[in-house]
Amino acid sequence: MADLLELADVSAGYGRIEALSGVSLRVPEGGIVALLGANGAGKTTTLNVISGIVAPTRGEVRFRGRSLRGLGSDAIVAAGISQVPEGREIFRDMSVHENLVIGAHGRRDKAGIARDIEVMTGYFPILAKRFRQMAGTMSGGEQQMLLIARALMARPHLLLLDEPSLGLSPLLVQQIFDIIVRLHREEKLTLLIVEQNAAVALAVSDHATILENGEVVAQGPSAALAADDSLRAAYLGA
């Protein structure tokens, strides 16, 4: 399969602190790739470089073979990459409905937007129940679902998920990952999932990359990484 996204030797940092050094990774079209590592390993920075929030100091990000260099986050969303940011970055004082509408910010097809809102409430029935409620009043799991639905409202080809399991009960994590896998299958979404919960992420993904201190320390098929006891002990805390 062709690569939908490719990071070639990407370095990035904040001021003089280098958060990523020489990271290369590929996300094949239609695949699920997991990006694993401890706190501060550079996982979120990698996603922020892809979605244009942080500019790389070296290297290049290519989407469908074209460089994303110099594109702002609006152009990158328009190109088909949506990020589900970590830390419950919903619009708290807006209703669930408004959150979904604003997810389609770059789109002009009103009928299509209305239809997609229905599709989203199909995947996440709880959002239909909370439709007029302020998003900030929902539970953590519901907010995470809203975040994913909001990102999908932009009709992305590639969805970047930043720690979807963070702060959720094991049951909810399972529920959310079930929906993520369904979305992948039914909406033909390509996924890049950042996780600390390595077990769940390795179970759903085909390929995985492990980062430590901003560098790639292991890369390969998820099944192989999961089976490697020394890797698991050293980096995955299992």
């Binding site: 702002g72 986050s73 609006d74 619009f91 807006m94 604003i102 909001r150």
Partner: peptide, 25 residues
């Protein structure tokens, strides 16, 4: 309008606004 929504999105969270493709600057 959509611009008003974009304003409020920036007010609530610049990270989230950028994530949905709003040009925050």
């Amino acid at each position: 309008s959509g611009l008003g929504r974009a304003f409020r999105a920036v007010r609530e969270s610049e990270v989230a606004a950028a994530a949905v493709g709003i040009d925050v600057r």
